[in-house]
Design a protein around this nucleic acid. Structure first.
Lengths: 228, 228
DNA sequence: CGAATAGTGTCTTTAAGACACTATTGA
DNA sequence: TCAATAGTGTCTTAAAGACACTATTCG
């Protein structure tokens, strides 16, 4: 049976928190179209590769994540598929976008084919003209991320293995771009069964009373949700 | 630039309510693989066609919806993309699934290439072995539909232009497979700004006090949500 | 009339938000 | 000591659910 041939790619919206800002991984394009412009990382799906595997592979190539158990600490989910016939001037391309949440990773970002990769503050990225329809993909990814924090425990994937309630609150504040009452937030998180588990340890990293340390709990969904 | 060629299709999960049951549109496959088996409707995306347009076209071909203003009364959204390398034994295929909600349509369902199309109760469809990975797509679509009723006004798209609060409640009960207190539901819907608008008319279709008729309101989101 | 459904009111419980207050650190 | 942050308690308000009660129809 004959069928119209398409190129299928995956594009990644990878969020992390760096320097007190929500950041997204971008690359500088090395070739036309949009040569020299900023874009989301991504690439072709291989002939015998599942879509999620392709996304994980690209993520590993761009960030070094996935080498060992690191992948376990990254959340990766399908975001949506973008297939406007004019989205890529070279050929008919359908791109399956994936959304990733990562704790601050080891600094190095070694692109393979990409000229350079960097963590760009989302606030900047939203006002930058990204290649292809990547501006739309980023906007959709941000909205998905914001919604997911409400009813899942995924905020904790932005934190290191051990974190304080304040760290977790900070994730919500940066992603939602709001301020949250520390006292009410504290109570809500502790009341949410399986969200965080105390380690028994404490931090003494700065001024103020030391905070207890926690690890991620078993729960994936929040009942009740933490609303924006 | 060389790239691996993929076939790209759209598959549809079309829900409606018929005979007091949540039903999904299925077709009987006319050719191999899975000839004679049940499948979700769908087809190839055309070389210069947007994905959403392809989904709308397939929906129109299978249901007759979309001829006129009918499309306005159908909700269509992207559900997810399925691209396991083994999902279609004939070729490497990526399918973009769309989810549709429709009020009970005019009975006729004229498939073009499909051997036959029918409204199958979802309860049956979930236990039927559908072609390809359509069982998974259906399950994902059902979960998405259930979630959407919570925080959007989309339940009303299952109703005819004019409907009663009881009709709307019935949608929730059938999709969620629960029973809902009619009195609390009534209050909640009326308190939800923009969910429904009274027409001033009444029904007198059976035993009991006649109910007021409503049309869909302007709101798309529910604040607060109606929880499962 | 009684059964059935529409629609309103009221009470209890749960959770959100505001905010007073205590606890424990570093400068 | 004070400033800063961690953590607890309490009050008010909003919303969910249980359910009594009234309203209006058909048989």
């Amino acid at each position: 049976m004959a069928f119209p041939p398409f190129a299928v790619t995956v594009d990644l919206v990878v969020f992390t928190i760096r320097d007190d800002q929500l950041c997204v991984l971008t690359i500088e394009r090395g070739e036309a179209p949009f040569a020299g412009g900023q874009a989301l990382p991504g690439g072709f799906v291989l002939p015998d590769e599942d879509l999620a595997d392709a996304a994980a592979r690209e993520l590993a190539e761009e960030t070094g994540v996935g080498k060992d158990a690191e992948l376990e600490r990254v959340h990766l989910e399908q975001l949506g598929t973008y297939g406007d016939p004019t989205r890529d001037p070279r050929m008919r391309t359908v791109s399956v976008a994936y959304l990733a949440f990562a704790a601050q990773l080891s600094e190095p970002i070694a692109g393979t084919d990409a000229a350079a990769a960097q963590w760009m503050p989302v606030a900047s990225a939203l006002t930058t003209s990204l290649a292809f329809d990547h501006g739309q993909i980023l906007a959709d990814g941000l909205e998905r991320a914001r919604a997911k924090l409400e009813y899942t425990t995924l905020a904790a994937t932005f934190c290191r293995d051990e974190f304080t309630i304040a760290d977790l609150r900070h994730v919500y504040e940066l992603v939602w771009d709001v301020t949250i009452d520390p006292r009410n937030f504290h109570r809500k998180v502790l009341a949410s069964e399986g969200f965080v588990e105390p380690t028994g340890e404490q931090t003494s990293q700065g001024r103020g009373r030391p905070a207890q340390l926690f690890t991620r709990g078993d729960a994936t969904q929040l009942h009740p949700p933490i609303r924006r």
